[in-house]
Write a protein that binds this DNA or RNA. Sequence first.
RNA 1: GCCGGCGUGGCGAAAUGGCAGACGCGGCGGACUCAAAAUCCGCUCUCCGCAAGGUGGUGUCGGUUCGACUCCGACCGCCGGCACCA
Length: 853
Amino acid sequence: MRFGGPPSVCASLPPHMRDRYDPLEIEPRWQERWKQANAFRLKGGRPKLYVLEMLPYPSGRIHMGHVRNYSIGDALARFRRMQGFDVLHPMGWDAFGLPAENAAIKQKTHPARWTWSNIAHMRSQLRRMGYSYDWDREVATCHAGYYRWQQSIFIRMFEKGLVYRKGGSVNYCPKDATVLANEQVVGGRCWRCGTGVEERDLEQWFVRITDYAERLLEGLDTLEGCWPDAIVTMQRNWIGKSVGCEIRFPLEASLDGQAEIAVFTTRPDTLFGVTSLSLAAEHPMALPLARQGGHEDDVRAFAQRARKAGAQAREAGEVPIEGVSTGAFARHPLTGERLPVYVASFVLMQYGTGAVMAVPAHDSRDFVLARTLGLPVKVVIQPPEGPLDPATMMDAYEGPGTMAASAGFDGLPSEEGKLAVIEELERQGKGRKAVRFRIRDWLISRQRFWGAPIPMLYCERCGIVPEREDRLPIILPEDVEFTGVGGSPLAQHPTFTKAECPRCSGPARRETDTMDTFVDSSWYFLRYLSPRYEKGPVDPGAAAALMPIDQYIGGAEHATGHLIYSRFFHRMLRDMGIVPANLPEEPFTRLVCQGMVCMFCGREGCGRVHAMSKSHGNLVEPDAIYEKYGADTARVFILFAGPTDKDIDWTDTGVEGAHRFLQRVWRYVGDNLEALKAAGPVDPTIAAATPARRALRRITHQTIRRVETDIERFQANTAISAIMELVNAMYAFSPADDGDRAVQREAVDVVVQALSPFAPHLADELFSQLGGEGFLIDRPWPRFDADAAREDLLEIPVQVNGKLRGRITAEREEGEDAIKARALGEPNVAAHLAGRPVKKVVYVPGKIVSIVV
RNA sequence: GCCGGCGUGGCGAAAUGGCAGACGCGGCGGACUCAAAAUCCGCUCUCCGCAAGGUGGUGUCGGUUCGACUCCGACCGCCGGCACCA
């Protein structure tokens, strides 16, 4: 029996014989009780709060990054529950994806088997960490009950023209044998396997996210201050809005009815500095113009070379600036000047119009090209520092200035000049204001098996047709062999591809591509609201009651992928009426990104610290930690190691320190249990009767406030420090009578409650030993008493000329003049004044006295 | 190259423009012990000093201020993102 026998016997035992802190016994016991009681469900009748952590990919086991992410979220969720919020705190699985398929090939099994067994294991690991999830809301994206609704959304998107098929150059990973979205190409390599990405011409499914570019950009303004600055900036850059104009340059000789070349520029003010045009190698007019100009072979060879070199050089970060003449000419739209047309290596077909006007004096790439090809350089913007000389310029001048050699525009500042030139072009019908975005449409089809099937059919008579809603879900077949050769198993399946056209009932071929897994994770947070809802993807009532997400927590690596896709999806579903229109556009009101968990590199001779990973040989398995120290220790360590947004180093000594702290709390309660249980409630008058009581009460109540504010600003490290200080103060306090013991008991209660968001098992166990009923998560957060927290004597430092020279103690109520006078009279201060005349005395109430001589 | 972030003890770190280094780790000392471990208590930025006290100190240089780790400007270093986006 715990704490069995008469207290005298217990107290007389040597410390090691008394009940030891045994998290391995305590933690599973409380986890079972929480489960039995459904402790983490919504309660109703309180203000809602949606706390969400990014859902994991079920790779097989949780890692320290998960532990950090989820410990941060759980601390907040539990704290808010204690504060009286109805906290929605769900968890699920981003369960489609390539690793399952690779495992299936290796183990000759089905990806579903591998995935579901991983989920089962990881779920038990998360339960073992004691996180306060409502597991009844669990969602797995590979479950037909989930992707059925995603297929339904896809069809709605198709009907609205938000998803379409398009041919053209796409990113292709030869190792994973599938295409990739732009966001999945990292430094020219596949985000998953690191293989160099190739360009291929294929027809694929795209989502028209560019339609939402402007709204996604505007929304970022409302997130300012609520999301990390870095993420907002990264998204802004990724969307990449450029305001400028499209200008049409007439061709000298028209070509198959095409009489002009359109370019996009953000610098119409430099229009009079144009000395040539440059086309992308893939530009549809490049070859025809070259044919016309008699340079077909040159241009063809150049285009081929550029494309091949392009992919490799781009990944190395260096593509040489080169160009080749087409032999054709265009005319300047305002001056009629003759301009040669080139094909240039750095012009991208995917951006703008695939053609640029070359202004060598004011664009560094055009400058390099002009110098290599011996083209003229015309200065049309003069910088404020003084005029430029085209003959001696070493580089382009890209800054602002005054327009020159620009017909009627001379003397205009470049900013005004932009507008003036656009106006003139519009008047003459030769161009117009235009806005371009860097973000491209989202390529969402994948030539893989383990993903949500795209619910589309190809009918010989009707063309591309969506599947009928009542035939959803299109389920992934189970009778599939994973050989790893010959492309997607779906395409090779004997019956999957055979279907009936919903329109004409004729034979149709089923689409065998599946959706990018980022589609799955773009709306999962909505499915949590009504995970088994049968009438649609989301129950509108639940969405209205529970959205938006008040706090989202996850890794910064999703800045330009998941976090943009989800913002897009939420807007789109809102526009479709699937999400109620009175909800805000932004799904994630606040966002916090946790830093990485790092450790000294395991490889010999490396000597550096980096993120934990298998390849660095510095993995610490969460299982090993909670089996040795318990989940509470793991949680406290990882939260105490540093502020949420910074990287932290895993150290064994740090883990032991965290464990020692929990033991110290445990021991204090155990050693004083009978007295604590017998203690009465605090009476403010009695509690204020002695300085020692006042001091302990003061730090007790200061701790309440500190922990509150620190959790709110995601600094669990300082919240835990504050609790440590209170524990130290408790150890220093020796109670002598009932008045003392009431104050001591209050301090212990606050420690236990304040600790519960971080070390919930230990806290609930101590709470129960102290006579508490139920779970701390259902108890109100301790009430802060400002009177008790207030310092009764102020210690005020005194500075002379900015240097600390002494300190005085003052009563709260003491007047400014009296404090200043005593500051001047303080012996050490007086010595430093040394009779010099005092110029000024500043008193910041309660803070400091500053004397200037 | 552009954008963003960060530079504080032996280490992780703390500090709304107001006492730099809370809290923890490590180290040193003490108590307990036959002893060790565990635990509890104390000390632990630098230099001068027996001490009182003083000196210097938050990457570097400058500025604003009675007062700057904190705000502003320039630079150096590290980390992250984007990278021919016209």
